[in-house]
Simulated assay, not measured.
Amino acid sequence: MTTTSTGLTAPFALARYRDGVSVLLGLVSGDRIRPLIADEPGAAGLNEFLADPDWDRLALLAEADGDWMPLADVTLIAPVEPRQVLQTGANYRQHVIELVAAGLTNNSDRTPEEARAFAAEMMDERAANGEPYFFIGLPACVVGDDVPLVLPASSDVHDWELELAVVIGREAFRVSREDALDHVAGYTIVNDVTTRDLVFRKDMKEIGTDWYRSKNAPGFLPTGPFLVPARFVDARDAHVRLELNGEVMQDASTSDLLFDIAALVSGASQTMPLLPGDLLLTGSPAGNGQHWKRFLRDGDVMTGSITGLGTQVVRCLAEGAAV
């Protein structure tokens, strides 16, 4: 396979890019991109295509002559247009074990080893008999990495959470785990940015978490740069890696997911139909800023990569700073 400077290894993928004031859906192959036009797959609209995708025809187009341009010459934006965004919490097994074990060790006479063993037993029981934990984000927060991440001045504890994101294909409503993957069109990269001091309500602790305020500032869901067909992605063991200014902060595998992709799609679909183009985030591994006691600052550059999905670059700006 060909690897581009953006880290894409799939034979082809979908992307969206700017052409003047217009946004076009493009087919990416290697280090080039071309618009999908006329009666070609996807030309009528991305979500319409994802409802009944014809990847085989796109594979032929990826090998054919056409109006190809260097990928480096276009401005990529978010590769999806979701109507719904679902986020998954506490879904990396080892990460959750360490968090639970730390709390147990601090509040009991258990040794660290005993606490981890107890936490591991709890997580295995949850995986076998429990359910995924979902909350919702705003589609308006989905942006491409062409847009800098503006850090709201109201807080100085904005954090990163790199995640594998499922892109829904055919509508999924109350589907079984056995059938769930039939509703996955592809995958992309999402950085689920969080303002930590807004997660828990201070005025009424009984209410609990406030995901609306902590996760839904403008641009808090950098997404892309590519939508890669599911056939090219091994979501069971994809390497998730985030670097902050060149220093590795998150480094894990999706093999550690407590609930796998099928369980997540099935679980999320039990409440509300998942629509073509919707995003389902799968959770973030250990290594966020809260762990490192280091949060995002003006001028920071986050470089996120997931096996088979390319590389996402997000540049941070303080609110009010010049672009």
Rank of each mutant, 00 (worst) to 15 (best):
M1C: 02
T3C: 09
S5T: 11
T6Q: 06
T6V: 02
A15Y: 02
R18H: 07
D19G: 00
V21E: 06
L24N: 10
L24P: 06
I33C: 07
D39M: 12
E40N: 14
G45E: 13
F49V: 15
L50Y: 00
L50Q: 04
D54C: 10
W55P: 01
L61C: 14
D65E: 15
A72T: 13
V74Q: 09
E81I: 15
P82L: 06
R83L: 11
H95F: 09
G103V: 09
G103Q: 13
D109I: 07
E113H: 06
E114I: 12
E114G: 08
A117N: 07
M123F: 10
D124A: 11
D124K: 12
N129Q: 11
G130W: 09
F134A: 13
F135V: 02
I136F: 07
I136M: 14
G137V: 03
G137Y: 00
L138I: 13
D146G: 07
L149H: 09
V157E: 11
W160G: 03
I168D: 00
V175P: 01
T188V: 02
I189W: 01
R196M: 12
F200V: 11
W211L: 10
R213E: 12
G219I: 11
P222K: 00
T223Y: 03
P225N: 00
V228T: 03
V233T: 07
R236L: 12
R236E: 08
A238V: 10
L242K: 04
E243T: 05
G246P: 15
D251I: 15
T254S: 03
D256P: 08
A262I: 04
S266V: 02
T271D: 04
P273S: 04
P285D: 01
G287D: 07
N288K: 04
K293H: 12
D300M: 06
T303R: 11
T311A: 11
A321V: 10
